[in-house]
Design a protein around this nucleic acid. Structure first.
Lengths: 213, 213
DNA sequence: TTTGGAATATTTACAGTGTTAACTAAATTT
DNA sequence: AAATTTAGTTAACACTGTAAATATTCCAAA
């Protein structure tokens, strides 16, 4: 069945063309300026052809958001060598902040925009799970080894995630300008905030564990 | 010049009509479904009349976002009686989480959407400042009275804010569904996360202060 | 009271959006 | 060679924000 295979390949190729074009538009011009017509122009097809490969615009965004997650996971490849789980947690946070500030449009799609979630509905958010699973495992390890006060790892993961997400979300939506007027300082301040959090929850250097909540 | 006064009043009245109509639309149908034409229809004027009272759509959103801040400040009226600054901080966080979950569309406008910030540009974000000033003052008081480790109050404010913002932002953009499947549990889990944070940073019950960062 | 000009509002229009239905041309199967 | 499936296009619908030109209303001075 060489011919059916080739067709399949061609189909995937056009799908990829569409995603590449969308990505180019949305990284260069931002989320709001990506339109089906512009995508079509870039790939030199008619606008309606796009609908032969994707159900609607949201489905395109969903696929891009997925690519974003792969990028984030890749950025976390530098964690394997870190033995101390608290330092690893810290580094994970740094990776997260770096990723968000370097790829605000991807970050938007992954964690802020409503659009990709419509396509997702009750299905998987698979890559989201992987990323957050990694966080949870690290935090569990921190608790097991006495770096963090024993607590519900689920809750603490959510908390740490919320913290770094809050930093990135406020920063890229320009809500920190009053707090941090100079843009070139932003990332540094965010790193300091992460630092503050990790130091606040670290109980390894203290005489007695923090009271359990 | 009673007549000029009356004119001024009429002008403000129509402005208010526009804002009321926008608010109605955007609370009932959500941010994305507010259009100039629908606003115009509601107030029974032609679409372009709106532009005589507001520069553009963003300016309308800016005004609504401002109303949101007033609501949030009002929700914080219950803080005055709380003497203990750490408990006050905790309550502020609870108010914040409650506000966000009860008024997701306002919250969006105040802290997530890009639109109102365009109108703002380098100007004030006055009400934003007031709200955050309140947070900073409380945190400073916590440090002065030994509830929190002495540190840059600015940084800690930003951190606490980021934490609660992260919770609300993830929740209303449906990124917590994997972590907290049941919607009716959401607010409770968020409250627990806040609780975890406050307990983690509280040093008042410990023998020695946490190491300074 | 009439007239002129300012303020207010509307009509029309432009350039764009996502998406659907109807149609055509090419490729594949029968 | 004829029939059928597939791939792609054109035209159209129902929207969007907004600007320019036009019409209407209102008020003050002549």
């Amino acid at each position: 069945m060489g011919i059916a295979e080739r067709k399949e390949k061609q189909k995937l190729e056009i799908r990829k063309m569409i995603l590449d074009a969308s990505m180019k538009l949305f990284v260069e011009e931002g989320f709001n300026h990506v339109s089906i017509r512009k995508i079509a122009e870039l790939i030199e097809y008619s606008p309606t052809t796009v609908y032969l490969y994707f159900k609607d615009k949201d489905e395109i965004f969903f696929n891009l958001h997925d690519i974003g997650f792969k990028m984030l996971l890749e950025a976390n490849q530098n964690l394997g060598s870190i033995r101390n789980p608290l330092i690893r947690l810290h580094k994970m946070g740094e990776n997260y902040l770096n990723f968000g500030m370097k790829n605000p449009e991807y970050y938007n799609l992954m964690f802020i925009a409503r659009e990709p979630m419509k396509t997702l509905q009750n299905c998987d958010w698979e890559n989201g799970d992987v990323a957050l699973g990694l966080l949870k495992a690290t935090i569990q390890e921190c608790m097991d080894k006495g770096y963090l006060a024993k607590n519900d790892a689920h809750l603490v993961s959510l908390s740490v995630w919320s913290h770094v997400h809050g930093l990135v979300a406020l920063a890229i939506r320009e809500r920190m300008e009053k707090f941090v007027p100079q843009k070139e300082m932003l990332l540094r301040v965010m790193m300091e905030s992460l630092n503050w959090l990790v130091n606040s929850i670290d109980i390894s250097g203290k005489d007695r564990p923090a009271k359990t909540v």
